[in-house]
Design a protein around this nucleic acid. Sequence first.
DNA 1: CGTATCTTTGACCAAATTCAAGCCACGTGG
DNA 2: CCACGTGGCTTGAATTTGGTCAAAGATACG
Lengths: 256, 256
Amino acid sequence: MSGQVVSPSSAQCENCHARRHGPCASLPAASLARFAEAARPVDYPAGHCFWDEDGRVNFVGILKTGYLRMLRYTADGRRQIMALVGPGDIVGEGFRPVAGYRLEASTPATMCRFEPAVFERLLEREPELRRAVCRDYLDQLDGLRRTTWSLGVQSPRERLCAFLSLSCRTMPFAPSPKGGGLLTLELPRADIADLLGTTKETISRLTHRLQSSGLLRIRDPRRFFIPDLARLERAGGLNPPQTARVKAAQPQRCEA
Amino acid sequence: MSGQVVSPSSAQCENCHARRHGPCASLPAASLARFAEAARPVDYPAGHCFWDEDGRVNFVGILKTGYLRMLRYTADGRRQIMALVGPGDIVGEGFRPVAGYRLEASTPATMCRFEPAVFERLLEREPELRRAVCRDYLDQLDGLRRTTWSLGVQSPRERLCAFLSLSCRTMPFAPSPKGGGLLTLELPRADIADLLGTTKETISRLTHRLQSSGLLRIRDPRRFFIPDLARLERAGGLNPPQTARVKAAQPQRCEA
DNA sequence: CGTATCTTTGACCAAATTCAAGCCACGTGG
DNA sequence: CCACGTGGCTTGAATTTGGTCAAAGATACG
């Protein structure tokens, strides 16, 4: 097995990135201590493959740092990243074999890793953990619905704006005193492209076009200064303004 | 409230479409009886809206017949159908408010409907039902991952082929004695288009092109004869052949 | 028989992909 | 220290695809 054990110690949870959301954020202190006790921290290099299309998953983990990509290839080698996994997220489908996708490290990553039997035992004892796992499913559903919608109806430009806006919440973002902030994109262009269902050339052209329309300033290839986050969100079709919808058959009033 | 009550009676589960999968398929007989007892069958017309983007869901149900669309609009009225709900599927997010999408009847539909309190009580008492609900989440995840992938990397032609192949399992399909079968698509063209992230014009052109390449024969706008299902699946990028992938950085071997 | 709805077809256009080449930062080794 | 190769990003030109718009068939329904 690749990926080397860093330290078998217990709770260095204090300033772990994973504390910001997910199980590590919602577990009460005592549970968290027991949880950390069972965790084995492990390092992985960028590009590390956790499992492939027909792989069995033999562990559960909480990602501490870095980003993983959940992806799938077509027969002729095109690939689509279906979701990113970030710090605090649960890794491992939990309780059934993985269906048709692979999981790889997009950046160097570190993870608190659990043997499946251990994790299952924890699940039985910690109701709060059970709830966190269930919430995780629902969060994944929400995320995938958003992605599906985005890929289906949005232009690459809108998708990129939406992605960047959301990244300001999930990736390193240093707010600047006079509004806006500096976003550090940890993913390579190719991954952004495959996540947004387009090509790296288009991503490159689009970022430069966004720069000329003043939506961002390119500091260097992986750092963008965002002067006005709300404007970027609007360009990404998020926070839809309260204006009525038009076109096609007007959607009916709902029953509720 | 629109949607009229049909009959307050209990178990007419015998030849209900919903028995084929989902909770109604997996519940043991005794549980199913109690389940049916609590259900209130209701009819809905095509186009009925169950909830909109910021709606609270005040019921849970099992769809008996028909198809529902889970969709979301952009500010300027383009819409994307993120998933279809078919017979046997659970309707209603269950335990938290719905986030940013609406649910409408794509065709006339009938549903076994439960008051949320009643359903919750059943959940406590029937472990099998709990498991079914959890399985439902994971099935939805799998479905959305497939859709995401499809929208991201496949051409409209591939998406249509994949959709048609899958429809042969989920929609009325009369197998013919000498292979193949007759598929009845219950959705209007516009819904197919919005599900596949394209336009009804493209769907129309594609079906006719698929006809000339012999992948299907158009009986009438909503009935296609599929002479060779396996070939259609291949055209849809499903059942990927075991050929190696090419192009770009070869994916690495996984750790398992 | 006329209207409304859904589907099909055609012509045109804009946008994004592809292919190809250039640029830049980085690390290696002479 | 500099030449060289590599990988990631950018830029340009040609091509193709699929969307838009407009109009014509079809079908169901009153």
